[in-house]
Design a protein around this nucleic acid. Structure first.
Length: 140
DNA sequence: GCCAACGTTGGC
DNA sequence: GCCAACGTTGGC
């Protein structure tokens, strides 16, 4: 099972809003970047992802799960853009900041550290485990 | 609020 | 198909 990272500005869509959607989840719409879209197309049901707050907070705040495969983005008529649905699984007991990721040599290769602009990113199993540890979660 | 990095667009 | 111009993102 693959791991991912979803970025959102909390002003636009926050973790709290995601949690409020409950098990139904929410369409991860608005992505207009091919790499990010391709990542979403590669997702399988049940894949886990981190939920990252950009700009405000700059930290990984929770874990989400893919609950619908890629489908057309309902916010555009442009057929190029697909998105998945995700639902909140659990918050991190201790949010993991960008600073922390940059400072940890085990995360030196992380996309978040090296290409901050990509809005939907792959995360390796090793990175996943490190961040869960830093975040105070026993590995899910 | 600024600026650097990056992706996309469009002219040639 | 290349490349310059432009817009957007996101860290600081």
């Amino acid at each position: 099972m693959a791991c991912w990272l979803f970025k959102s500005e909390p002003d636009t869509w926050s973790w709290d809003q995601q949690v409020a959607r409950g098990a139904a989840g929410e369409e991860w719409h608005g992505v207009r970047n091919y790499q990010a879209r391709n990542n979403m197309r590669a997702m399988r049901l049940g894949d886990r992802g981190f939920f990252y707050h950009s700009n405000i907070g700059k930290e990984i705040v929770g874990i989400v799960e893919v609950c619908a495969l890629a489908h057309p983005d309902s916010t555009t008529d442009d057929p190029r853009w697909d998105c998945v649905d995700i639902r909140a699984v659990t918050p991190l007991p201790r949010p993991v900041g960008l600073e922390t990721c940059k400072a940890d040599p085990r995360l030196a290769g992380m996309v978040l550290v090296n290409n901050a602009r990509l809005s939907v990113q792959p995360v390796t199993a090793a990175e996943w485990a490190v961040i869960c540890g830093l975040g105070g979660l026993a590995e899910p």
